[in-house]
């Protein structure tokens, strides 16, 4: 049993990775943050985790080079081990299609990246309440 929640932030944009982390930090959540730039790296890591070390949450961007978020999501949620890991699709896309696909693949939530930081901080606070307690 880990003491701290481990939050995986998967995004090809470095700024976005930082912003998300900052948003969580702003709500004074003491979490462990691991960054991945694409799906391949994410899957490598996840596959190497054992159940005791599963992350508490995955913040997954959709549009990434290499294996993108959709494929990764699908992989996670169809994996008999990994599927229990909560995945929140966190993307700039507001397309209905992406939303549908995401939920089809089993995403726990689909969130369009907000324009302002404050909004982002609000959202992360909610997320923490819902999934990280």
């Amino acid at each position: 049993m880990k003491l701290k929640h481990q939050i995986l932030i998967v995004d090809d944009d470095a700024d976005d990775r930082e912003i998300i982390k900052d948003a969580f930090v702003a709500s004074q959540q003491d979490y462990e943050y691991i960054f991945f730039e694409n799906g391949d790296k994410l899957m490598d890591y996840l596959n190497s985790c054992d159940e005791n070390n599963f992350p508490s949450l995955v913040m997954l961007d959709l549009n990434m080079p290499g294996k993108d978020g959709r494929a990764s999501l699908k992989e996670i949620k169809t994996d008999k081990r990994l599927h229990i890991i909560p995945v929140i699709v966190f993307t700039t896309s507001s397309s209905q299609r992406d939303k549908t696909i995401s939920y089809d693949f089993g995403a726990n939530c689909f969130v369009t990246k907000p324009d302002t930081f404050n909004n982002l901080a609000d959202i992360t606070a909610c997320i923490a309440k819902l999934w990280l307690k």
């Binding site: 944009d13 700024d15 912003i19 700039t92 896309s93 324009d115 930081f117 404050n118």
Partner: peptide
């Protein structure tokens, strides 16, 4: 529009951070 949004979001977000 999608691609244009991205830098704007950054401006906005970091602008907030800066203020904060």
């Amino acid at each position: 529009s999608h691609d244009l949004k991205e830098p704007l979001r950054k401006i906005s977000t970091f602008g907030d951070r800066l203020v904060a």
